[in-house]
Design a protein around this nucleic acid. Structure first.
Lengths: 123, 123
DNA sequence: GTAAGTAGTATACAAAAGGATAGTGAAAAA
DNA sequence: TTTTTCACTATCCTTTTGTATACTACTTAC
């Protein structure tokens, strides 16, 4: 009798789920890590200089901040502007593309607020 | 004269931005990494067994899948059910709490789709 | 007897991420 | 004169993440 196991490998249904995973991975590639979103959030509250960001993102070191800013810049999410005053001042700002993350961050923050509440209840 | 540098350290304005960062960090603590969201997405398409998830999440190894599932389970996002059939079958499913991530994932996926489009244009 | 499927674990290693500390060089403030 | 600010960079170290390969133990199929 050997009822063939329905393999589900016909092109129609294959990857329905994978098709959802791929764009999320694309997003994660640009945003993942401990610091990128916090840095972006800090810049959503206004343009900032290096040391200002360092103060507002709790716990970040200069090395991490510098590295992450470079990556964000190379992905066109953050813009770096140098003013050749004395001493030199460097200003970081979100690009228009960077601002397109506002909705993502709002959603994640809302979930995070609920999550924290839940953890406190369960203590 | 010595105009005191306005320190901005009075409790009122301090941390307006930090207050946004903290819940996002809470969320990232539970969700960050390369694999957790892809695994959750795969489970949004239905309950799955270990090897099914392994097939649907491109590139994941048994070791990573096993490790990530344990973490997700300990955070109450995923439920593990053992059926003592022969051979033993283990089914993974999203908890109700896990389902609360649907909106987060949808937002991230939408951004990811737009991001991929953008990258292709810029080639 | 051999392979394949069930759900993983064990071991060893490489790579990436992150942390701690110190230093650069110029200028201004104490 | 020493310290502070500015925007970083350099070095070393630990932790986390990821890869590769092999193995367990049981059952069914070939």
């Amino acid at each position: 009798m050997a009822m063939e196991k329905t393999k589900e490998t016909h092109p129609h249904t294959l990857g329905e789920c994978t098709k959802s995973i791929l764009p999320v991975r694309d997003a994660l590639e640009v945003l993942s890590g401990k610091w990128k979103l916090p840095i972006i959030i800090s810049l959503m509250f206004g343009n900032k200089r290096f040391s200002q960001i360092a103060k507002e993102v709790p716990g970040i070191t200069d090395k991490m901040l510098s590295k992450e800013l470079r990556e964000l810049e190379s992905n066109d999410l953050v813009k770096r502007t140098v003013y050749d005053s004395i001493p030199v001042v460097v200003e970081y700002s979100l690009t228009e593309y960077g601002h397109s993350l506002e909705i993502v961050i709002k959603t994640l923050r809302d979930w995070g607020v609920a999550h924290r509440k839940r953890m406190m209840v369960a203590e």
